[in-house]
Design a protein around this nucleic acid. Structure first.
Lengths: 154, 154
DNA sequence: TTACCTGCAAACGCTTTGCATCATA
DNA sequence: TATGATGCAAAGCGTTTGCAGGTAA
């Protein structure tokens, strides 16, 4: 069993560049489209493969939103959580909750904690403003895509 | 615009019964298979449709695990979170984190919080024991399905 | 020259939908 | 009897994979 060495390719650069240009989380498909629009040709499969390996190494962190996996570059390592705008995907990192507390809760039930997720969804200042403007005109349809999405709990 | 009235059907009963028999979260497919095995015929599409409407009403809560949506009956309303065994899906409800704190964090960044997720993954006592037994034999492959799954952050 | 990486397209798994039929109220 | 619910199969969607050709080292 030989250890394979990762090679440097144009596509990898393109990927990182694309990720860095994003403010918040992007889906694989969006990232691919965005790169294609810039004329930086790269296969969709490659985007997925690259994102997966970046995830494994911990260079991107991911969440699930609207049935898709969303990715965000993350140069620093270490565990953190996000405050996410459910409209535009803009992201702010927030401090982790008290992990000791979580671990404690787990062991109270005989569980050994291995991991946890915490995501806070909301509207960023800009989208809020835009939202208010919209409401001034027509004010039906309160439900947003993200709220309709799976994993979020009110 | 007339309000449509929900009808009582055999399938709905079967669904609820099936859900009640589950200790933790089940996927739609598993639930369907489980019911079929019991001879309670019900279409897969119906299972999905039913789960969706139960979710809308708040009678089930859901999480995402391994790329599937998992469902769990939840007779009480009110927001809560879960401690989930990543091996067998067994679930324990835990108290919500300090929501005021989350809301505060959000507004610190100009966000309006609309929702949040918190899931704690681990091994339940039983699976832990089973795991130890396995390790006594072969002790390779540490990675579990759930750890490899998307939304979990180490 | 080796073997990792890429692109394409086909395959996949979960979920949703169109439509004809069934059955509740 | 009217119309919401169901079942089937097909379609949809995001994601993964097989494979032949490309390319870094």
């Amino acid at each position: 069993m030989r250890k394979s060495v990762s090679r440097h390719t144009r596509q990898k650069d393109v990927m990182l560049q694309g990720l860095r240009e994003c403010e918040g989380f992007v889906s694989a498909q969006d990232l691919h489209r965005r790169l294609s629009d810039e004329g930086l040709n790269i296969g969709l499969a490659t985007v997925y493969r690259q994102l997966r390996s970046l995830e494994e190494v911990g260079s991107v962190d991911t969440i699930r939103l609207n049935g898709q996996q969303m990715f965000r570059i993350c140069e620093d390592n270490g565990h953190h959580h996000h405050l996410i705008c459910e409209r535009c995907g803009r992201t702010v990192e927030i401090e982790p909750p008290d992990e000791q507390w979580l671990r404690h809760i787990a062991s109270d039930h005989g569980f050994t904690m291995t991991s946890h997720t915490l995501e806070v969804f909301g509207l960023c200042p800009d989208c809020q403003r835009r939202d208010d403007a919209d409401h001034a005109g027509a004010d039906t349809q309160v439900q947003t895509a993200a709220q309709a999405g799976a994993q979020t709990v009110a």
